[in-house]
């Protein structure tokens, strides 16, 4: 019975980590848009390539934030959460 419970905990943590990384879609689309617009801008005005590239990298870094939140949650779910949850289970059943 205990093995089943721990198995459910581990499986739930892995599934949760996978689901959290769905958030990777958003930054991907957003950064793609940003880079596409930057390419257009450089095509229109090749002389301001440096400024456009710097601004684009800054914008990409900020757009990446939501994806990184999801990444941190996924890392916590994989490396930290299973141990904590198993400890909580053991305390609850008094072992």
């Amino acid at each position: 019975m205990l093995e089943l419970a721990i198995g459910i905990i581990l499986g739930g943590c892995a599934l949760g980590a996978g689901c959290a990384m769905i958030a990777g879609i958003g930054p991907g689309v957003g950064e793609g848009n940003a880079v596409a617009k930057a390419c257009e801008a450089i095509g229109r005005q090749p002389e301001c390539k440096g400024d456009v590239t710097t601004t684009m990298l800054m914008g990409c870094a900020i757009a990446e934030t939501t994806g990184l939140y999801a990444l941190v949650i996924a890392i916590l779910l994989i490396f930290v959460a299973p141990g904590r949850f198993v400890d909580i289970l053991m305390n609850a059943i008094g072992k």
């Binding site: 870094a61 990446e64 934030t65 990184l68 939140y69 990444l71 941190v72 890392i75």
Partner: peptide, 12 residues
């Protein structure tokens, strides 16, 4: 967000 951005990028 500043801390998570830097740490998340390097750790990932």
């Amino acid at each position: 967000s500043m801390a998570f951005r830097h740490y998340g990028n390097v750790l990932s």
